[in-house]
Design a protein around this nucleic acid. Sequence first.
DNA 1: CTGTTAGCGCGTTCAC
DNA 2: GTGAACGCGCTAACAG
Lengths: 316, 316
Amino acid sequence: MKRKNLTLKDIAALCGVGKSTVSLVINKSPKVKQATREHVEAVIREYGYTPSLTARALRSQREKIIGIIMTRLDSAAENRAIRAILASAYQQGYDAILQESLLNPQLLEEHLRVLESRRVEGIILFGFSGMETISLEQWQHRLVMIASQRPGFASITYDDQGAVALLMEQLHASGKKSVSFIGVEEGDLTTGRARYQAYLACCQQYGLRPQALLGDLSYQSGYALAEKLLTPESEALVCATDTLALGAMKLIKERGLDIDVASIGSTPLMTFLHPEVTSVRLGFEAAGKTALEMLLAMQTDPAAIRQTVLPCSFTA
Amino acid sequence: MKRKNLTLKDIAALCGVGKSTVSLVINKSPKVKQATREHVEAVIREYGYTPSLTARALRSQREKIIGIIMTRLDSAAENRAIRAILASAYQQGYDAILQESLLNPQLLEEHLRVLESRRVEGIILFGFSGMETISLEQWQHRLVMIASQRPGFASITYDDQGAVALLMEQLHASGKKSVSFIGVEEGDLTTGRARYQAYLACCQQYGLRPQALLGDLSYQSGYALAEKLLTPESEALVCATDTLALGAMKLIKERGLDIDVASIGSTPLMTFLHPEVTSVRLGFEAAGKTALEMLLAMQTDPAAIRQTVLPCSFTA
DNA sequence: CTGTTAGCGCGTTCAC
DNA sequence: GTGAACGCGCTAACAG
C-alpha cells in the first residue's frame, strides 16, 4: 500500500532505457523514437508516475511558486482579487503559497523570510499602513503590491479619489446639499486618508460643508459613526467602504431616516441587502489578474515594474 | 544589485570551511567549535544567506508543505477554519498551497495532481457533494476531509444534527408551535440533507408539523424561500445557514413579521446585523486546528485516521 | 538521428 | 571538522 514515490530512474529501469530518455519523453522532446515514446508513456501511466517538481525546481532554478500575502483571509475585497490571481496562476503552471499578515509588520517580515527560503519566484503583497518600515529591496523586481505603493516598486492601486468623486458627482447631480462622510482613520493611507481627502476636495469643488467622521473598519464603527454624524437634516451619506455602509444602513433603517447612501465596494452582500445604495466597484478581480501578469512580466522585463491605478466604475 | 542566491558552498568558501560545517552550524549541531560557529554565523548574517528549502526538501524527502483545497475563497466558514490551519501550520514550520475547487470535481482532480507532483505532505480538503467520484486512495493516509466524510478517511465534520436540535429545543422550550425551516437541497449531504433531516426528526419528536423549503445557498434563496414559506401564523423559522438567514431576515423586516429566527453559523455579520437571531456556532476554528493536528499525527501514526464530529454551541 | 552517460543544482549525512 | 555520496530530474556532450 505504501507506494513510495517512483523516480525517473525507476521508470527508466522498468522501460529498459536511460533516465534521460524518460525525461525527454516527459518533456515532449521530438528526439525520441515513436515506439520508445509510447512504451515509456505506457509505463508511466501504468505505475502512476509523477515527476517531482521539487527536483525539477532545484535543477532549473525555477520554483513556479508565488507567495501571496493578504492582510486578512476574510477580506471580501482581497478574496476577489486572490481568486483571480489563483486562476491566472494556475493557467501558467504556478501555485501559490498563501499567508496572512493580519496587518502586523512583524508577521509580514517573517512571511517574507519564509518565502525567501522557499525561493518563490514572486510575491503579491496586499499592503497596509504600518508596513512602511519593512525593507523590501531584495524583492524589488519580483514583488507587486496591491492597494499601496512605494517608490520603485510595482503596484496596483485602486482609484480611491476617482471612486469618491464618482459618488459625489452623482449625489451633487441629484441636488443633494448636505453630504456627510464616514471613513476610516487617516493612518490607513488608501481606504482612510485618500478617500477622506477626496471627499474634502469634492466638498470644496461643489461648495459643500464637509461633515465627516473617521473610525475603524468594522460594521460597528459604521453604525456608531453614522449615529454620531447624522442629523435629521442630512440628505446623503458617503461611506468609505461597504462594511461601514452596512453598519450605517442598520442605523438608518432603525431610525427610519431618509438618506441617500453611497459607498465603495459593491459587494454582493451590499447589492443584495440594500440595492438602493449607490455603489462603486474598484475592480478587485482586475487587480488580481493584473498583479499576476505584471509579476510574470517583470521576470523577463524590468521595465514592467509599473505603478498602475485601476479605474473604478458603477456596478454594471 | 542582482544578488543571485548564495549557496551553502559559497558561504563555506567565504568562511574557509567545508560545506558540511556550515550545514552543521545552520542546524545547530553541537559538534562545531564555538569560534567556528560564531564566525560562520557572522558571515551568514553579513551576506544574508538563506538556505534553500527546496534543496533541503529534495534531500530529506520532506517538503513541509501541505495543500488546502477549499470550495470557495469567499466562504466565511472555510475562511475561519483556514485561518486556524495557517496559524498552526506556521508554528510547525509548514506552509500551505491554497487551491479553490469551486465545487467542481474535475478541478479538484487537477488540483490533486498538482499537489502530487509538489510532493505535499498532506492535504486538507473541504468536501462538497459531487466529489464522491474522485478517487483518493493514494492520499488516504495523508488527507483530512472537512465537512464531509468517506469510509477509511480522516475527517472532521460539523454536528449538523446537534446544531439543529439545539435550535429546535430552544424554540420548543419557548413554546413555539409553528416552526418552519429553510435549507439547501439534499444533494448537499451535510448543509443540505443532514440539517433538513434533523429538522424533520425534531418536528416528530416535538409533535410539530414540518413546514420546510429547500433552495440553494445564497442570500437570494433565503429571501425567496422565506417569502414562499412564511405565513402570518408562522411563529419561528430555522435557517440552515446564516446566509439563508440573512436573506430571510430581509424579508421578515420588510414585511414586519413577528417571527423568531434561528440559524447555524453565528458569523460576525449576523451577530451584528441581527443580534436577536438565535445562532449556533459549529466551531470552524476548532475544525481547522484539529484538521492540521490530525494530519500531522497521521504521518507517524496511522491510527490517527479518525472521523471526528465537532460539537456545536451557542455563541459565547 | 537516436539514445546514453555523466555531471549539475544544493543541502544533508556519514564515514574518515 | 571534512570530503564524498546522495536525493531526483535536467541537459550538454558523446557514442552508436
